[in-house]
Simulated scan of single mutants.
Amino acid sequence: MLPERRGDLFILSATLLASAGWLFSKEAIQGLPPAGFVGWRFVLAALLLLPFCYRQLLAIPRTNLLKAAAVGLVMALNLIFWIQAVSHSKGIGEGAFIMSLSMLMVPPLAWLLFKERPTRQFWLALPIAVTGLLLLTMGSGLSLSAGQLLFLLASLTMALYFNLNSRFARRIPPMALTCIQLAVTGVMNLLYSVLLESWPDQVPPHIWGWFAASVLLATSLRFVCQSMGQKHSNVANAAIIMMLEPVWTVLISVFWYQEPMPMQKIIGCLLILLALLSYRSRNLLAWYRNRRALSINKRG
């Protein structure tokens, strides 16, 4: 198998594991406090990564460590909003599409924080995405449910995380950076849990099964698949495949939770996908032109 095809399969596996992670999390918090679940999930995931990057961590300057940890605080806030949104929602499909809008929130935040003007593709994609969001969330009137509002806040903080991470953590090796930020996210969620949540006296055994699946499959194995995929897959292919995560999540939610998907919501989901595709169209065209130029040069 060609390395590029193998990379695409790894990215596809990562999207399937990520969508399954929504199910694992939703089931696990039926018996565990939400922030406590996220806290232990990310702390254990960081410990699993530690043997593979501890030498890198020792070599990182203290200033860069502090920057990575500070960005990890934004990630922690994002996960607090996300898991609370999951706990307040009956299904998970609609939330996955709302979360996918974080990629369209990155440019306006970069404009606000770093004076980087959004591209023309962003302005073309924005009205499509807003229309899709309205169809997806405004079912019976002009009011957002608690879960939808929390998903929007999670999407916004995810966009903030992407902006900060791309600027302040570039000099840190990816695995070491992931380990630091997973650890910070886990510790902050555990502190939140200690202060504001109460743990049950007894946790059913099957809940620990969902928890283990979240740590081992949806976090650790997903990270490995995504890293290996990005190593071999080209950027355009990876970007398109990663958009499938909310689609898998919707299918899981409809099958597992019987989440209703009337035509209005289906059209809203399709519009959000269309907005994401149109926003990434510039990268896709550049990739296509490069591939075409390479093939012409090889023939010549």
Rank of each mutant, 00 (worst) to 15 (best):
A110D: 14
L47A: 07
Q121H: 06
I60P: 07
A96E: 05
W248F: 15
L48C: 15
Y257C: 06
S198L: 12
M99G: 01
L196A: 08
L153E: 01
I83T: 03
L73E: 10
K67T: 07
V235T: 14
L156I: 03
L153D: 00
F151C: 00
Q181I: 05
L32H: 03
V203I: 15
L276H: 02
W248Q: 13
A146D: 12
S100G: 03
W256C: 04
P204N: 04
P200C: 10
P34C: 04
K115P: 01
E245A: 10
I92M: 03
R5E: 11
F37V: 06
L270F: 02
A35D: 01
L50S: 11
F122A: 03
T15N: 03
V38A: 12
L152F: 13
S166C: 00
P173R: 06
A154W: 01
L79M: 10
R167L: 09
R41Q: 05
I267R: 09
K265G: 03
G229L: 06
A146S: 12
F37T: 03
I11K: 13
R282Q: 14
N290C: 15
A159S: 13
A239G: 14
G132V: 08
R280K: 15
D8K: 14
L190P: 02
L273E: 11
A238L: 09
Y279Q: 08
P173E: 09
I92H: 01
W40R: 04
